[in-house]
Design a protein around this nucleic acid. Structure first.
Lengths: 218, 218
DNA sequence: GGTTCAATCTTTGCGGTGATAAGTTCATGT
DNA sequence: ACATGAACTTATCACCGCAAAGATTGAACC
């Protein structure tokens, strides 16, 4: 009796433990939240000792960083897919609005993961170079979309300015929504939210608004 | 010796323990980060048993919630002070830009606290009604500024739309900056950051190709 | 075949954490 | 004076990240 391991001997070496840990971690991240995500719980769920995980991730922070990296890659892909699927070459504002929508829907579909991607203070591994790279590439994708929609070269100052504005807005909106801090009805669709916010910008910056002091055309 | 307590007997009852715990928690929050903020460490620093804190806060989440509540009240006050100090009744865009600046500077001055305010998943107490109230009031302040600058009634749809847009943008920009994810030079001033972002919106929403008023490289 | 070896996974254990239970001190009202 | 209750104490528990050292396995070499 007292065979220490409840598992059959055939599974001492799991083989794909790393992938399975990541998958379980990602799932558990969304269910229990980042704070309660523990290596012990993940390992236990996979029927494996907790320490086994430390042979695939140097520590908890590294696990979280890899999850976040994966998130940025998925976000980038979502932006790519969405943009080339829609094809709104004519209306640059509509095209940008559509990118914002894809962004918001990614965040809503993976709220905890999204939060992790932008909350390094929770405990990410800053020395993970793949993380920084993935994040920059995702931002680069947004810049590409903006550059294309504005018909400007990627390096232009206009594109950098618009990218900062767009990323700030998209990230802010997504963040407010997944934290349920917006004062709008809970069930409001992502389309409506983005539409509402864009209309708000129209009021402030658009020609329908009150003229500012320096007006270029009149 | 072996007096269990190193403190003089006169200080069994601290008296203002609750305030001192909050102050120490806030300080420690910025130094060690929200994840590493422990009740034990806070209490120890005050020369008090860890359990003493539990007589003032039902649990760790309640402590964090009260910190966040305090943060929203300070943010609201910062918006008020800034707006009535500046007085830019004429240019509504400039006025909004100034509110964004105050917002960003608050976040930069209290990065960990700011993160806590918008990261309930880290472990806030959702049942804390003061927290929700403070947050709504801070948002209400922003709405008031926008309503005044747009010369619209507070309940108008325009104001709600512009408020969602403005809060999303301000929060997103602040969040990106304090997490150091913006691709701009680290030391960039808050003024420049807000200015840059607003120019970006001009490019997207403004009338055809508004030239930037300030000529400076970014 | 047997032996070695490195990778993988195990048990064991340390120190720190949130939280509860039960006891101690003290200020205050009657 | 003394009862009451709030403020604080010392256990103690379960869980966590993480490190050390040992066990299991497959593959590679002879």
């Amino acid at each position: 009796m007292t065979k220490p391991s409840a598992r059959k001997r055939t599974s001492y070496h799991v083989g794909n433990l790393s992938e399975r840990l990541m998958a379980e971690a990602r799932s558990m991240l969304e269910t229990v939240g980042p704070a309660k995500l523990s290596i012990r719980a993940i390992s236990e769920k996979l029927g494996v000792s907790a320490t086994a995980a430390y042979h695939h991730f140097s520590n908890r922070a590294a696990l979280l960083s890899r999850l976040a990296t994966l998130g940025f890659r998925e976000l980038q892909q979502a932006l790519i897919d969405n943009d080339q699927q829609i094809e709104l070459q004519g209306d640059h504002r509509k095209r940008l609005q559509n990118a914002s929508l894809a962004y918001l829907e990614f965040a809503r579909a993976n709220p905890a993961l999204y939060q992790l991607m932008f909350g390094p203070e929770i405990g990410l591994d800053a020395s993970d170079e793949g993380f920084e790279k993935a994040r920059l590439e995702a931002f680069g994708e947004l810049q590409k979309i903006i550059a294309a929609s504005l018909n400007e070269p990627l390096e232009s100052r206009t594109v950098r300015q618009a990218s900062l504005a767009a990323w700030s807005h998209s990230h802010g909106l997504a963040s407010l929504v997944i934290h349920k801090v917006v004062g709008f009805p809970e069930g409001m669709s992502s389309e409506r939210l983005v539409e509402t916010s864009f209309q708000g910008f129209e009021h402030v910056f658009g020609r329908s608004g009150v003229p500012s002091l320096r007006v270029s055309d009149d």
